[in-house]
Design a protein around this nucleic acid. Structure first.
Lengths: 335, 335
DNA sequence: CTGAAAGCGCTTACAG
DNA sequence: CTGAAAGCGCTTACAG
């Protein structure tokens, strides 16, 4: 037999209003009464129904997390940090992702319109028309993560893709004196990829190395594409001295291709990646890459979102989290 | 201005009851009326409030997933498969895990008692007293994943740890003629670990190799412990010819230690793991391991849970999913 | 400090 | 086929 607030009230000899107040720690309730109710709640093992509570309070204490994908440690770490931060404050986490059944936009619309969550953390590195419109139309607070583009009035947190890529290329040039530096790009329309590419171009420019289209090839962030792109780059008459893969997965692909064609990293060609995935530590030689503060990304997103929901802070955040070079042996450094 | 069912009803010139029925596809509504309502719903962009719906129907169409941890690709894949399967049926997924703030049992109790979810998928490889009691007391349907022990009346799905370990050891013995086979165990009280250990023992017994306590060392499923355990094993007067690490992470640790002490795998000592994590494909030589059907684990858990919730099927499932040997070069096989 | 009552936004048995 | 009304289990302004 499910016990509800009426049973508690009955047993305590008070009204349900008083029970409710006691449980919500209203200082309107006399300490004695509160204690008496507390005891009965424990005896009966009563847990207030959060659905009813939500309907009444018009708030769910749940945040929605909308992700493009649920694959790999990156997203796991992101979810992990959100979970930690949310539960610290007794909030719940509803996970949603685009997948075979529907795209990110549909997922987002449904979640935001539904009243199932009080706010949304949206990670959308892939540029999508319409997201901006959906967000501005809705009253649901949103924090954008790793998005690019113009979202006036919406807080954004992202990692410093530009700086990370710039630093890698600068390292190639300054420390190792490479001049022929290739890049394996991420997918078109992905803003992480585009910002990293911009960082690459900017570093070349800074050091007055002119951009060579034959050294720029496309990939799509997966191992296979890195493998193909690496092969393409190395099959040209003028081989690059160094290759920057826009993420570690493609760098892994580069290693695979290198092994197949007996190309030595870094003596035949230097390689660097981006993300610092766990696997990158086990490549031989260890991959030089860019470390990304994922946990911080998640916990800050939660903080800002809850501030917004609680109207504590209506400031529009635009925060770019610093990244850090992680030097392994693949760039040519002794390691 | 939030639009609700009354606005729709008003505009359609019907009662809210009819609107509700139309949206729930009741065949009590005249097609004309239904069409008219449908159109207005679209015009107004009305989305029924699922919280109100849940309260009224006493069901949330949400499943809770309780995990011991949110780290690594394994859990990500598990969540991924649950998400896919759930959304196919228009159900939502609430993620909960034990973490710094509270343990698995508290998480479970709160979630089950709360009415926030209609059912729970609980992954609890670590044996915990009390789980069984909590589950049998509660009316919330539960599916247990990778648990061991007695949970009468509760469905369980798990992977075949015993067989996987047995097969690895048998492979060591039959194909490679190893006789001195060490094991790096997983943590005490972890049922995956214990079943794998049982498989190890059973295979030895089958081939009449007597168990040697000095070849059995403890680890806790992380890289560091594998490193330490490998070192311990290889520092003994009689070195093992082969080592079975109870999971891939510890096998990775073994590789690390081997590199440090210039021990060659597999010529100095063969190594095998369990899990087939992504990283295991990139170890040199590639790790011989046991492939685990994680996606199937998740999707079956959802299916059985929803059957139970919908009372379609009250059968108590006890399913052990088959695993598969994944032969790399670390066991001594040509690869 | 406490209670009766309205309200949160739906669903559905009951009556027609 | 449709509507008025009760109900899901809480919270909270209002009155005392």
């Amino acid at each position: 037999m499910k016990i509800d607030i009426h049973k508690v009230a009955l047993k305590a000899g008070v009204s349900i209003a008083t029970v409710s107040r006691a449980l919500n720690n209203s200082e309107l309730v006399k300490p004695d009464t509160k204690a008496k109710i507390q005891k009965i709640v424990e005896d009966l093992n009563y847990i207030p129904n959060p659905i009813a509570r939500s309907l009444s309070k018009q708030s769910t204490e749940t945040i929605g997390v909308v992700l493009p994908d649920l694959v790999g440690e990156f997203f796991m770490d992101f979810i992990h940090s959100i979970d930690e931060e949310a539960y610290k404050r007794n909030w719940h986490v509803l996970i949603s992702s685009s997948h075979s059944q529907r795209n990110l936009i549909e997922t987002l619309i449904e979640l935001m319109g539904s009243g199932r969550v009080d706010g949304v953390i949206l990670m959308a590195p892939q540029i999508q028309d319409g997201i901006s419109k959906i967000i501005s139309k809705s009253k649901t607070p949103v924090i954008l993560v790793n998005t690019c583009g113009d979202f006036n009035g919406t807080s954004q947190i992202k990692i410093d893709n530009f700086k990370g890529a710039y630093d890698i290329i600068e390292h190639f040039i300054e420390i190792h004196k490479y001049k022929k530096i290739g890049i394996i790009n991420g997918p078109k329309g992905n803003c992480d990829a585009e910002e990293r590419f911009a960082g690459y171009l900017s570093a070349l420019k800074k050091y007055k190395i002119k951009k060579d289209p034959s050294l720029i090839v496309n990939g799509n962030f997966d191992v296979e594409s890195g493998c193909v792109a690496f092969t393409t780059l190395m099959n040209q008459k003028i081989r690059p001295e160094a290759i920057f893969a826009a993420n570690d997965m493609m760098a892994v692909g580069a290693y695979e291709a290198a092994k197949e064609f007996s190309i030595k990293i870094p003596s035949d060609v230097a390689v660097a990646g981006f993300d610092d995935i766990y696997l990158s530590n086990f490549l031989v030689p260890r991959l030089t890459t860019v470390r990304v503060p994922i946990m911080e990304l998640g916990s800050k997103a939660v903080k800002y979102l809850l501030d917004k929901i609680n109207k504590k802070n209506n400031k529009v955040h635009f925060e770019v989290l610093p990244v850090e070079l992680d030097i392994g042996g693949s760039c040519g450094c002794k390691y």
